[in-house]
Design a protein around this nucleic acid. Structure first.
Lengths: 355, 355
DNA sequence: CCTCTTGCCGAAACCGGTTTCGGTCCTCAC
DNA sequence: GTGAGGACCGAAACCGGTTTCGGCAAGAGG
């Protein structure tokens, strides 16, 4: 009851402490307080400290939309979701959003989410959010090879950060997980198990990650001294159905692969289905490795060996990088990549003898 | 090139048309324009029209955070995601968000998303968003039976709208899909196929929907003249693993059910697994009906019969209702429910003869 | 014809900040 | 002793809106 009331008080009763309150409490003017809070050099160190301390004590925090009226910035990050790639998005979204909003809020930022069902609509979203000061910059999920969002925002000099990388890095910040390293490592695992014919089903070719993962696959083959066989690689598979179809296609080959590496977990689960249809047992007759670490993979039989991707952490990092970009840091210093962690869960095994 | 430039112009070059620009263009003062835009009665109809027309023509739209400084409202809807119920959320989130943001933007509102990993943290989120004017009201996904968010926001007189219903409707607006009707209909379907022993695996009991769906299940039994058998009902299952376990439990009964109704698709897919483990063929030896309409259900073999839930539309409606609430409409008039659509897809069949 | 409303709009204050522009006062060099 | 310069802060304008208050003209009523 009293706890409840205390909370409610903060909801409205207390009229909120303003910059003038702080100024009065210190016998200063609000202009001085403002400049002190913003670290202007024409305010003495001593005064800055006094002001900050008092602000802390009085629990004063400038009202973002009051500052925005002059500065144009409202301390909020924009995220425009694309409906077109639903299926790809779904498993990630909740954790990703949690990460972004957490990362944003530790710096006093909030997250504004919009959605668009076409590229044109997306541009509109950007424009509206900027125009109305609902976003100071943008997080762009799923970098594409020739990304119209990048072209637009870069030229417009609007801060943004990519989840994924970009061939032309000019003006780009990003966070990414090194999927290419994962693919390379996966091929290494499979080769170590004796596999020589290792198929690769790549993801959506419009996305930047596809090229990288292909490189990783090829690098892995090179590491193992295996000559790449183009008939064993397919691309542009993102759904379970895609995977089932691609898997069937590979298994129908004259000399089918004994292992299939998939750039996407969902596709790997499709390969499960194809294997089942062919009477093959995953982990024995056919080895499969995926990438993403989705729940359904862990629940499959056998559990899918895959690479765990921490989308929550990714969101957190992206928010942090974008905020630094908004604050003026150079893009060159705002690029991070991390490794994915391999989860060896049982969908691989030694190459079957009776080939 | 020229198209690009035009867009960029709107991004920044054009300094944005303000209320004074409109006033000057009409030979009025900005106070008149402001009141005209807001429909004050002390401005003549004629002038209001003139102003609105000109605003339209000049593409003027008041800057939300400039108004907020006086009004306290910034035309944005708040949504606080709870991390605890990840699994329940995941499949819905993308479409749901798309719906909400679309519904919001048609009324000139935007969507602010935050996340919380505990109830306490969630209250903090509410408070911060309100305090900083980042949300004028909230959408509360997944209504719970004794929902702390409702208690809080209701008492604080903050506008909110529920996805789901509430036993005590005081001050509550909501949108919901009548899961109870769906359950009732499902039981009817199964009974029509000859099933007499119909199991029911309910969802998370902390959620408001669970009670309703149980009622629907019982109503369906009553319709069919079947006496309810409590040993055939389980509850609190939300994940695939929960479903597998619950399914195994029901199938291990002395007199197992010939059909199992699940309040959640994911759980139904768990029942698939349990059936498989028991050597039962879904659709022949065991009938299963789910609820949600998730993709994985369509991809299962046999495709899961279920109820399609349009989360995008739900989000859209919720946004609309919340905005009306924010604008002052009474909660009593802001309650909507719609029916779910049954998808008969092949996981049901006549009751097997050799019982 | 004069007052009293009423309708309609302008003037100015205000909201909570930021930023420009000066104005002290102190120090230091000459 | 004095002038210049720098450190530090106050005064006031400003941002783009909203809201209060008051004034003017037209119409109603006596």
């Amino acid at each position: 009851m009293t706890a409840r009331s205390a909370i409610l008080d903060k909801y409205r009763a207390t009229p909120r402490v303003t910059i003038s309150d702080v100024a009065d409490a210190l016998g200063l003017t609000k202009s001085t307080v403002s400049r002190a809070m913003n670290g202007y050099s024409d305010i003495s160190e001593a005064t800055q400290l006094r002001v900050r301390r008092m602000a802390q004590e009085m629990n004063y925090q400038p009202l973002s939309h009051a500052q925005a009226i002059k500065t144009g910035r409202t301390r909020s990050l924009g995220l425009v979701l694309q409906l077109s790639d639903h299926d790809a998005h779904r498993p990630f979204l909740a954790e990703f959003l949690a990460g972004v909003s957490a990362g944003a809020s530790t710096e006093g930022y909030t997250l504004t989410v919009a959605s668009a069902d076409s590229d044109l609509h997306m541009i509109d979203s950007f424009r509206n959010l900027l125009r109305d000061g609902k976003a100071d910059g943008f997080i762009l999920p799923r970098a594409m090879v020739d990304d119209p969002r990048v072209a637009l925002l870069r030229d417009a000099d609007v801060p943004f950060v990519l989840y994924g990388r970009q061939a032309d890095p000019t003006g780009c910040c990003w966070f990414d997980i090194r999927g290419e390293d994962a693919m390379r490592e996966a091929v290494g695992h499979l080769a170590a198990l004796g596999h020589q014919r290792i198929g690769f089903i790549n993801g959506g070719k419009r996305y930047a990650y596809a090229g990288l993962r292909m490189e990783g696959y090829l690098a892995g083959l090179a590491d193992a001294g295996i000559a790449p066989d183009l008939t064993l690689t397919l691309q542009d598979a993102v759904t379970l159905e895609d995977g089932a179809q691609a898997g069937a296609q590979l298994l129908a080959l004259h000399r089918p692969p004994s292992a299939i590496l998939c750039a996407v977990d969902r596709v790997a689960l499709g390969v499960y289905r194809a294997a089942e249809a062919n009477g093959l047992k995953i982990g024995q007759d056919l080895s499969v490795i995926g990438y993403d670490g989705i729940q359904d993979g862990a629940a499959a039989t056998p559990p899918l060996s895959t690479f765990e991707v921490d989308n929550r952490a990714a969101g957190d990092r992206l928010a942090s990088l974008l905020i630094r970009r908004i604050r003026g840091e150079e893009p060159e210093n705002l690029r991070e990549t991390v490794a994915a962690r391999f989860l060896d869960r049982g969908s691989t095994g030694p190459v079957p003898t009776e080939q």
